[in-house]
Structure formats: C-alpha cells, structure tokens
Computed example of a mutant assay.
Amino acid sequence: MARRWYTALGVNLLLGIPGVVPLWMLWYIASNWPLAELGLTVREPTENDGVMPALVLCGPVVLLFAVLWWLANRPLAERTALTAGGYWLLSVLATLLPTAALFANS
C-alpha cells in the first residue's frame, strides 16, 4: 500500500491540518522582522519586544512539527514508487494545501 502516491498525499494532507499553526508562526516572525526590515510588509505596531520572545515561543512548536513531518515522511519516501524529487515535492505541496485553503478562504 505504501508504494502508491496517494498514501503520501493522504499522510501529508493530514499532517498539513495541524501544520497550519507552525506555518502561521513562521509567517508571523518573517512578516514582523526580516520582511518588515526590507520594506515588504508592515510591522505590527504593538510588537516592540524584539524577535527573541517570538523565537522562544514559536521555535519549539516549529521544530516539533518539522521533526514529526520528517519522521512520518522518511519511511514512506523509501517505500514509495515515486522518484525522490517527486515524492518530496508531493509531500511539501500536500502539507501546504490546508494553509493555502485557509488563505484562499480569508
């Protein structure tokens, strides 16, 4: 069963649902500091504590999700019939799909 591409699609779609939270955290950090410094976004006016509190709060959540995503995908990548590049592309896009659906709906 793991040799089929839709197994990887299903696993990563399910991982993408709770993955909305760490992706939002990454966007929050990026939009308030590096992208705001470049002039690409506008910093939240009440965000004046600096980047360290955000990294302390968001870092463990993002790291935990990344480790769980890797542990779920590594065994599937070895057993699937897809090429390595095709598998990882499918995995990343399927994980981002719930977040993209929320963006499209808002």
Rank of each mutant, 00 (worst) to 15 (best):
M1E: 13
M1G: 08
M1T: 12
A2H: 13
W5P: 12
W5Q: 09
Y6S: 10
T7D: 10
L9D: 06
N12D: 11
N12F: 08
L13Q: 08
L15D: 11
L15F: 03
G16R: 02
G16C: 03
G16D: 06
V21E: 09
W24P: 00
W27Y: 12
I29R: 00
A30K: 01
S31N: 07
S31H: 05
N32C: 00
P34S: 08
P34D: 09
A36W: 07
E37V: 06
E37N: 08
G39H: 03
T41W: 02
V42M: 11
V42L: 14
R43W: 09
P45W: 07
P45F: 03
E47S: 09
N48P: 01
D49C: 00
D49L: 04
D49V: 01
V51P: 00
M52Q: 08
M52F: 09
P53W: 01
L55Q: 01
V56Q: 11
V56K: 14
C58Y: 11
G59K: 03
V62P: 04
F65K: 12
F65W: 15
A66C: 13
V67R: 08
L68H: 03
L68P: 04
P75M: 05
P75S: 05
P75D: 06
L76M: 13
A77W: 03
A77K: 04
E78G: 12
E78A: 15
R79Y: 07
T80E: 10
A81K: 14
A81H: 12
T83W: 06
Y87S: 05
L89I: 12
L90D: 09
V92K: 04
V92M: 08
L93H: 07
L93Y: 04
L93P: 00
A94R: 04
T95I: 04
L96P: 00
L97F: 15
P98Y: 11
T99C: 04
A100T: 12
L102C: 14
L102I: 14
L102S: 11
F103N: 07
A104Q: 10
A104T: 13
A104E: 09
A104V: 15
